[in-house]
Every structure is written in structure tokens, then in C-alpha cells.
Computed example of a mutant assay.
Amino acid sequence: MEDSLKRYVEDKSIDIAALMEGVKSTKPAQLLRLLLTIRKDSYTAVMRAADEGHIETFCLLLSPLKGIADELLWVKEEKYGRTVLHIAAIRGCSECVDLLLNTVSAEKKNEFAAETNEFGNTAIALAAAWGRGNSIKSILYCFSPPQRVSLLKIQNKTIDTALHRAAYNGHTTTLKIMLESVSLSTVPRLLNMDDKCNRTALEVAEYEGEKECSELLMKWQVKSLAGAVTVAEEKISELQRADREKTDSLAEAHQSIINLQNESDQKLSAVQKKNERQARDIASMQQRLEQLANYLQAAGDTNLTSDQYHDPDS
């Protein structure tokens, strides 16, 4: 098994069926040790499988390691500082990307996807530069929309985002996949990000003469602006509706107070003849009702809030 794995990593002629049989018969702990230690040019066997697109071998190498393979997945090759996820994303091997994200523990999944290479590029940014839309889709749709925004906002050491890298290289479809993965209201946050030259992705596309990318990004700018206007209009309508409801509620409360005042007048009149103490209590209640009525009247006229009324007896 060890010899077969060495030959595979070294990219030599090998009987894949024999290698796969050896993997199946090796205990997970021993397999993990071999996968971590056997390298060529800092490449592990898992990296080699992802790089060559050997999906069946890749799946076989990872499947016994789910739950204990984090150490293997975080290993970086020395030349560019890439993890196996970076390599799989660049090669456009979405099956490998899916398997990797399903293998890493749930609590580390976001951190794993956000890991950068020597130049500060995430797997998404590398895939964007190469136009590997399927890889990007596999990564992004493992996360919630807010998490996708966070991943797409990551900037490399030259302050480029994944959108900048796709625009620079003219990958229109890749741009569309990234923009469609987030809510329309968050699109401006991505489109307005600048690189080290203070250029947005649209400005990069225009500068590089990538007409299709420019047109797509411009359409999304207009689309997101229209969406923002719609949201603003809806909020205004909600506020207007709330104001109407508030006015109606105040009017209803005011009328209730007036009714209570009328009722207290009637009771006062009836009680005055019988009991002087009860009459004083009702008179005090009337005074407080009058204060409430005055407050509600003022609130209806000046939109006072409830904390602006202070009960003098409280």
C-alpha cells in the first residue's frame, strides 16, 4: 500500500485498482498518516487526485477519513500555499469540492472555505480567476446568503475580491454565478468594493476591455439600485400605514377616555348626594382622566411618544 501510494504521488505508472484495494484494506489512522507524510513537491496523494481529476481515487482516499481528516484537508503545498480545496476549485472539479466540504467538520466549514493561499486568495477567488463557475457554486451554496457575502468580500494581498479577479479575466458567467448567489440588497456591497487602485470590478472590466463583463456588471448595478428604490418605497408605505394605524389608535383611546369622563360625571352626580368621600375619589379620578385626555390629544397633534407623558402620581 505504501509503495503504491508513493508511486501515485510521484505521478508514475500505477495500477489504480491495486491502489484502491490497498486503501480499502488500510485502517483509517494508518491511511491518514500515509496521506500526510508521503509527498512529492509538497503534494499529498489527495492533492494529486484533485489536480489530476481522478474523482474515484479522490473519493476513495477521503471517504474513510470523514470526521478525522481535518488535519489532512488543511495541509498546504509549499509552492503557492494552496490547500486541496484550492487545487480542486482551480481544476473545476466540483465533485471533489463537494466531497471536501462534506468531509470537513461543520464548525470549521466556513473557516476552511475562507482559508487563503500565499497571495491571500481563497478557493473562490482562485476559481473566479480561472472561470470555474461550478466550483464557486459548490462552495457558495454550502452556506447561508450572509455567509456567501462574507466569503465574496474577502480581499487578497492586492485588495482584489473574487469579482475583481473574474472581471479582470473576462469570466462573465462566473460573475453572474457569484452575484446570483446573494440577495439583491447586498449586491451593492460587493460591486462598490475597490482594489488597490481604487477600482470597482466594473471599472476593472472596462479598463481591461472586457465588454461582456462590463455590460453584465452595469446591469447588476442598475438592477440593485432599482431594488433599493423598491425597498425604500415599501418602507415608506409601511411607515405611512403605521402612522395611520397610530392615529386611529390614539383617536380610539381618546374617545374611550371621553366616555369614561362622561361616566364619571354621571357617577359623581349620583354619589355627591350620598357620600362626600366617594365624591372626592371620583373627582380625583376625573382629574387624572383629564390629564390622559390632554396627553392623547397632544400625541395625536404632535406625535408625542408614550415616554413623554409622566403621570404626576406615579
Results as ranks from 00 to 15, higher is better:
V84E: 04
V23L: 07
T37H: 04
L100M: 06
S42D: 14
G67T: 13
L36K: 08
G22S: 13
Y43D: 03
G120L: 09
T116F: 00
E52G: 15
A50Q: 09
A29N: 12
E52H: 11
I90A: 14
K76L: 05
K108Q: 14
W74T: 06
S63L: 07
I87F: 04
R39Q: 05
W74R: 09
T57H: 11
K76G: 00
S42E: 11
K24S: 14
E111M: 08
S25T: 13
E52W: 07
C59R: 15
R48Y: 03
A45D: 00
G53K: 10
L101H: 13
K108M: 12
L72N: 06
A29S: 13
G81C: 08
G120K: 07
A88V: 05
H86F: 06
L65P: 12
S94I: 02
V46Y: 05
E115T: 15
I55S: 15
N110E: 14
I87D: 04
L99F: 11
K109D: 04
L62K: 00
E107K: 15
S25M: 09
K27F: 06
F119A: 13
P28C: 01
T103H: 06
T57L: 14
C93T: 10
T57S: 12
A50C: 10
Q30A: 15
A69Y: 06
F119T: 10
E107T: 15
Q30L: 12
K24E: 13
N121R: 15
Y80M: 03
V104D: 07
L36M: 11
K76R: 14
R91S: 13
S94F: 08
Q30K: 15
I124Q: 04
K108C: 11
K27T: 02
C93I: 11
C96T: 08
A123R: 00
I68K: 11
